[in-house]
C-alpha cells in the first residue's frame, strides 16, 4: 500500500470534489423546489393535479437512479434532436443535473408533503381569515413552518444524494469518485485511491449525519 501518490494527485481530486459538490448543491436546490411544487399539486383538491403528482412520485420512486441518469444522457438529446431537427448537445453535466433534480424531487415531494400536513389546519384558517390568498398563506405561513420541521429529513435525503452523485461515472462526468479512480489508474495504484475516496465519502457523510442529529436535538427542545 502506497498512499504517498495521493498528494501530487490532489489538485485533480479537489476538482472532482468541487464537481460533486456543485452537482449536489444545484440538485438539492432544484430538487427541493420541484419537490415543493409537486407536494402542493399532490395536496391540491383538483384530482387531475394531485393524480399527476402522485403518478410522478410513484414512477420515479420505482425506477433506478442510474437508469434516469443514462436515460437523460442518451434519450433527451435524441428527443431534442427529433423535435428541433438539429443536433443539440446538452452535455453530461446538464443531463446529470436534470436527472438528479427530477429523481430527487419525488423523494423531496413526500418529505415536503408530510411537512405541510404536520402544520395544523388552524394556521391555514388564521392566514385566510387575515385576507391572505393561497399563495401568501403557503409562502408566508405554512411553508416556513413546514420547512423548519422537515429540515432534518431534507438534510438526510441530501446526504444520500451526496453519495448517489457518484453514479455520474456512467456518463463519464469527472466527479470526486471518478477523478480518484482515473488518477489511481494513471499512477497504477487503483486500490489506494479507491480506499482514500471511500474514507473521504465516509467522513463527510457520517460527519454531516452527526451534525443533522445534533441539529435535530437542538430544535426539538
Amino acid at each position: 500500500m502506497d498512499f504517498s501518490q495521493i498528494i501530487p494527485a490532489m489538485p485533480g481530486l479537489v476538482d472532482g470534489m468541487l464537481m460533486t459538490l456543485k452537482l449536489l448543491a444545484l440538485s438539492v436546490v432544484g430538487g427541493v423546489a420541484l419537490g415543493t411544487v409537486l407536494a402542493l399539486l399532490r395536496l391540491s383538491s383538483n384530482p387531475l393535479l394531485s393524480g399527476f403528482a402522485k403518478a410522478y412520485v410513484n414512477y420515479f420512486r420505482s425506477i433506478p437512479l442510474l437508469l434516469v441518469i443514462t436515460w437523460f444522457y442518451l434519450a433527451v438529446p435524441m428527443l431534442l434532436n427529433w423535435i428541433t431537427g438539429s443536433f443539440v448537445s446538452i452535455g453530461a453535466f446538464t443531463s446529470c443535473l436534470v436527472a438528479f433534480m427530477m429523481f430527487e424531487a419525488a423523494y423531496y415531494c413526500e418529505i415536503v408533503r408530510a411537512g405541510i400536513q404536520s402544520i395544523s389546519k388552524g394556521q391555514e384558517n388564521a392566514a385566510y381569515a387575515l385576507g391572505m390568498n393561497y399563495g401568501q398563506a403557503m409562502r408566508l405561513i405554512i411553508l416556513p413552518q413546514a420547512f423548519r420541521k422537515m429540515m432534518p429529513l431534507l438534510l438526510q435525503q441530501s446526504i444520500i444524494l451526496f453519495q448517489d452523485t457518484s453514479l455520474v461515472y456512467a456518463v463519464g462526468l469527472m466527479d470526486f469518485l471518478n477523478a480518484a479512480r482515473s488518477k489511481g489508474d494513471i499512477v497504477g495504484l487503483p486500490h489506494e485511491f479507491l480506499i482514500f475516496a471511500g474514507a473521504v465519502y465516509f467522513v463527510i457523510s457520517f460527519g454531516a449525519s452527526l451534525s443533522v442529529k445534533r441539529l435535530q436535538k437542538r430544535f426539538a427542545v
Binding site: S120, G122, N125, A126, A127
Partner: peptide
C-alpha cells in the same frame, strides 16, 4: 380562534 393561531 379557540387556539389563538398566532404564527409561531
Amino acid at each position: 380562534f379557540q387556539h389563538f393561531e398566532l404564527f409561531p
